[in-house]
Computed example of a mutant assay.
Amino acid sequence: MSAVVWTAVGSLAAWLWLLLCQGFFWRTDLRLPPRRDPEDWPAVCVVVPARDEAAVLADSLPSLLAQDYPGRAEVFLVDDGSSDGTGDLARELAGRHGGLPLTVTTPGEPPAGWTGKLWAVRHGIARARARAPEYLLLTDADIAHAPDSLRELVASARHGGFDLVSQMARLRVASAWERLVVPAFVYFFAQLYPFRRIAVRGSRTAAAAGGCVLLRLEAAERARIPDAIRQAVIDDVALARAVKRSGGHIWLGLAERVDSVRPYPGLPDLWRMVSRSAYAQLRHSPVLLAGTVLGLALVYLVPPVAFFAGLASGSAPAAAAGSLAWLVMTATYLPMLRYYRQPLALAPLLPFTAFLYLLMTVDSAVLHHRGRGAAWKGRTYARPEPADPAPERG
């Protein structure tokens, strides 16, 4: 058998393993866990870090202020050095729409060793702690919530005994490039962090979606959030790991009525979204980068290449193995396209999208080595020093 055939068979074996043994990552039916309304609704403080978010705030902040929550709740928007009037706009929106009480505060520039977002979160949590809430809702400034979002999150957390409940907001899918790239972004994330394993106590899989994280204040203090993850660029995954490592019970699933309103209309916008943090996800390791590139090539690029090479050379085994691997890949992508209400005809194009992600990941490493990695809204973060681990629960 030729090298092409063996490689195609290896790719097919990888896809069969992913299909059956990777936590059924491809299923998209995981929603908020079963809930029952508590007898007493706990106090909640909503913390919104915001830096230059005036363009999206009018589509997101009113949805937080309009939360239909039976207990005590208030919103803290932390204006992280914005230059576009984000803080003033937030006050204007609160005056116009009313609803939950809003406090706008500014933390100042982050000290060395902190990312701007986590410094803002720290400041917001400190302000919220004075209100003695049981829960914190950490949400981004581009996230719009249905009126019952907070009620559903709290009821699910209370009923399920979760210290952290997170929903991956449905990202905007409007432009042609968003349709091609965005569903795949969530698909790849679920493949890396299978949602069903996250809620299993004792499993090593931990992740959250930073746009919507309900966190018990006691669990945050036990895990030393955010101080223990102060340098994390991918802060949502780092937060979930810290909470789980300190003994917390966590849950992550897909959202139905929590949406991102941030547009990524062109490929350059999506490219920056991925490349700014991809190399950080690989812990800035050239070895992990090389392994990731080879893995992406084997799993996503080999099937179509083997199929067409087999047809061109008359190698039936290569064409068969390549087509079967491509078929399994396509089938696992269909549920995500349905979730995003996109044409199922996009599923066979997943190898092309994966190739784009491969290039974005390599570009992320190149930008890092040029001193321009992990850049976001005027700030660039170097490779973090090892942070003190959160204490283990005895």
Rank of each mutant, 00 (worst) to 15 (best):
D80R: 04
P391M: 04
A8C: 02
F76S: 12
Y135V: 08
L327V: 13
E152W: 12
L282G: 10
A242G: 04
L118I: 02
R201P: 15
L367N: 08
D84H: 13
V56T: 07
V56Q: 02
F162G: 04
S315D: 15
L192N: 15
L358H: 01
P111A: 04
R35S: 11
A382Q: 05
V56M: 06
S323R: 13
V287Y: 14
Q342T: 07
E53I: 06
T139A: 03
G291P: 15
F355V: 04
L214K: 05
R283S: 15
T28Q: 07
P133A: 00
S63V: 07
G161T: 11
A365T: 00
E152L: 12
R36W: 00
A73N: 13
T86L: 04
A220G: 11
A130W: 15
A55E: 09
R131N: 05
G23K: 11
V9E: 03
V366K: 02
P384F: 03
A345D: 02
V182K: 03
L359E: 06
V233P: 08
V121F: 08
G23I: 13
R383W: 04
R196P: 14
L327I: 11
A157I: 09
G85D: 10
A126W: 08
E385S: 14
E39N: 11
E134C: 08
L214Y: 06
V305F: 15
A66E: 12
A190E: 03
P384S: 00
I143Y: 07
A347G: 00
V233L: 12
F188E: 14
G23R: 10
L171G: 06
D37T: 10
V47C: 06
P111I: 01
A94L: 04
S260G: 10
R36C: 11
A146K: 06
G116A: 06
I198N: 05
V104H: 03
P389H: 03
R216V: 11
D140A: 03
L344H: 10
S285P: 14
R72Q: 14
R257F: 00
V366A: 09
L138F: 03
L136I: 07
C21M: 12
A365R: 00
G373R: 01
L267T: 01
W17G: 10
D163W: 13
L289T: 06
L334P: 01
P101H: 08
R272V: 00
G373Q: 05
L19G: 10
R96T: 13
E53G: 01
Q167D: 13
A319N: 09
E218V: 14
P107W: 06
V258R: 01
A120S: 05
A320K: 07
S82Y: 09
V233R: 07
L350S: 06
K377R: 09
R222M: 13
R131F: 04
W41H: 02
L164C: 12
T28I: 07
Q67E: 08
P304A: 12
A55P: 11
W41S: 05
L180V: 10
G108P: 03
P38V: 01
S82A: 14
F195V: 10
D52M: 05
V46I: 09
W177T: 13
